[in-house]
Design a protein around this nucleic acid. Sequence first.
RNA 1: GGCCCGGUGGCAGAGUGGCUAUGCAGAGGAUUGCAAAUCCUUGUACGUCGGUUCGAUUCCGGCCCGGGCCUCCA
Length: 463
Amino acid sequence: MTSVEISLYDTAARTKRSFEPLEPGRVRMYACGPTVYDRIHIGNGRMFVVFDILYRLLRAVYPEVVYVRNITDVDDKINARAAERGVPIGELTKQTTEFFQQDAAALGNLVPTIEPRATDHIAEMVQLIKDLIAKGHAYEAEGHVLFDVPTMPNYGSLSGLDRDALVAGARVEVAPYKNDPADFILWKPSTDSQPGWDSPWGHGRPGWHLECSAMSVKYLGPDFDIHGGGLDLVFPHHENEIAQSRCGDPDHGFARYWVHNGYLTSEGEKMSKSIGNFYLVCDLLEEFPGEALRLALLKTHYRQPIDFTKAGLTAAKSELDSFYGTLHKFADVTAATVTADEVLAAVADDLNTPSALTHLHQLRTKLNSCDPNNPNEEIAELKGQLISGGALLGLLTQDPEAWRRGSAPSKDDTAIETMIAERIAARSAKNFAEADRIRDSLVEQGIILEDRPDGTTDWRRRA
RNA sequence: GGCCCGGUGGCAGAGUGGCUAUGCAGAGGAUUGCAAAUCCUUGUACGUCGGUUCGAUUCCGGCCCGGGCCUCCA
């Protein structure tokens, strides 16, 4: 544990606030997870990386952090996709959930404390609806149950939208069973082919928003610290969660800090399948290491818009090569167990990862100025800070040797070593023509040689 | 129409009322048989027009440009 003041931009307060958990030493955080109807794209990935950074920061500062990230596995997009593919809904959600977990792990994200599924919490959702009806905040109409927005005086406070503006700007036709255009669905009827559960209002399924209200209170309690998601969730999703939770339980306040990450464009434009800039995480992983994706995302502050590009990925990959090159150079030095204070301070300041990366680069430069053949305390300290600062960002956690030579040791490695030995022999015989011939031949195979002052030769694979 | 964000050097991208990050690319140098890697040096940028100020990229206002949200998209 380290003592540092954390400040976070709170969407509800529209300003940066100093963070203090409700319970000293124990932080409770909820982030909206994926709706599992398709593999995640890089925009989704950004959100998961951002909240993973927040999770890592909180873990570094507080003894206990409970991080809940839900899996929404009941949704009309899921139904549509399953029908389109002709697969059972359960199969689609199971498979997509597994894919999601793979992609999230490839991006270097830690596994949350709890990953609850919506379909395991239908009973809790039904109970919340009952409470809302009992308190006069919801009504039944034509088999649906709707939240009665006009019964909540400060509805819209999170997003700063007032009801008149909402109604005026509504782009969709108002369903005839709504009392008020702003009312939203808590429960809706299901046909035989749609997933459904028995309820006091007939066979049906929950509306969006409801699962997060039900699951957050179950796992984190009616008052908890942080709730987050993408900026687009501010309205209507989080606004409606607040309405459900606070009206369902007026004695409690729900989340205390609201954290939202900014949007992402891709190659200068909004991601779109027709433009060809729609990047699924799994597709990008075919071309780049997951860590490069992560770094490319962290180079921009989380609340800023980011234009995600393959050129940016290439740059991120180069930076990582450089970091791992340094760690490799000092592989024989045992890193000191230290905290990278400046990196931590940067991340603690509303997750300023670009600034944290600057400090990481400074550490790298200082370390590179040291002599690896004269290990000393300063080197151990610097290396310790570099590793610890990297770990706070979920970076530089791999074996430098594996990074440089490709994760899978190839059967060619022996042949490469043999050629290097031949080249060393040629060099000591001053047969530079032969030495260069061997090096060029290796370059063609994507092998870069690095001669060291002591006469040995190191090698790495080009990206 | 309403609400809300941005516009920083070739690119990416922090930050600050005066000391002009950082990375990539470029230039020069050191090192090297030549390379690679690394180190050092080098680039006075903050949309525009006004205002406040001794001084503004940083604060305030107008304008221009770009983006987001306004009922199920992270």
